[in-house]
Amino acid sequence: MAQNPLDQFKINRIVEIQAGGIDASFTNSAAWMVVALVVISAFMIMGMRQKSLVPGRWQSMVEMSYELVANMIKDTAGSEAQRYFPFIFSLFTFILACNLLGMIPYSFTVTSHIAVTFAMSAFVFIGVTIIGFARHGLGYTKLFAPEGASPILLVILIPIEIISYFIRPISLSVRLFANMMAGHTMLKVFAGFVISLGMAGIVPLAFMVALTGLEVIVAILQAYIFSILACIYLNDAIHLH
């Protein structure tokens, strides 16, 4: 195991690929993305292969995940947002799978990289902005002008609203990335203690077990927060408040 707790975030190229001047190498990160894809697809498709009216345990879990996301969209963005359900569902399960797979020792946490989380949040941000303008035209800019404010106040408020709109993808991506990175770094540091302390390492080991439990909760919660915020932004784009 690497001594530096940050070494676990290193990107290692497994297969070097160059495609049209772009470095598309297959890395450890890509490998775990593929694992996440396979795990989710297997979970969703194999769990439903019987399509029974009275679901077994596996099928119940699949249905539960479906209804969790469906309710989340319906409650935050209304029923008009149901057409974006497959995207939000993919987003939620992908982040959740990446977060949880990162808990496995010696694995790699895809979501601990700002490049990945920012790409996802930027995609949501751009998509939501396009949906907003497509639905409301230039009327969408009303989002930046609070109603009933005096013109002088608007001069201050509009920049604030615009900035608050543009920092959404930043806070969205930073939150996920920071949570995953902090949790995993901490786990690695304590793991180092366990090894270096020998027999006395039982104390940090117990702490690590508790911390691992907490990390699982954080992994689930962060996936949920990311997707519910995407729903809230979608709600803004659809309903203009």
Partner: peptide, 15 residues
């Protein structure tokens, strides 16, 4: 770049 490329591939496929 490699992360983003593979993110697009895997997430797109998942979607």
């Amino acid at each position: 770049a490699p992360q983003l490329v593979w993110l697009a591939i895997t997430f797109g496929l998942l979607w």
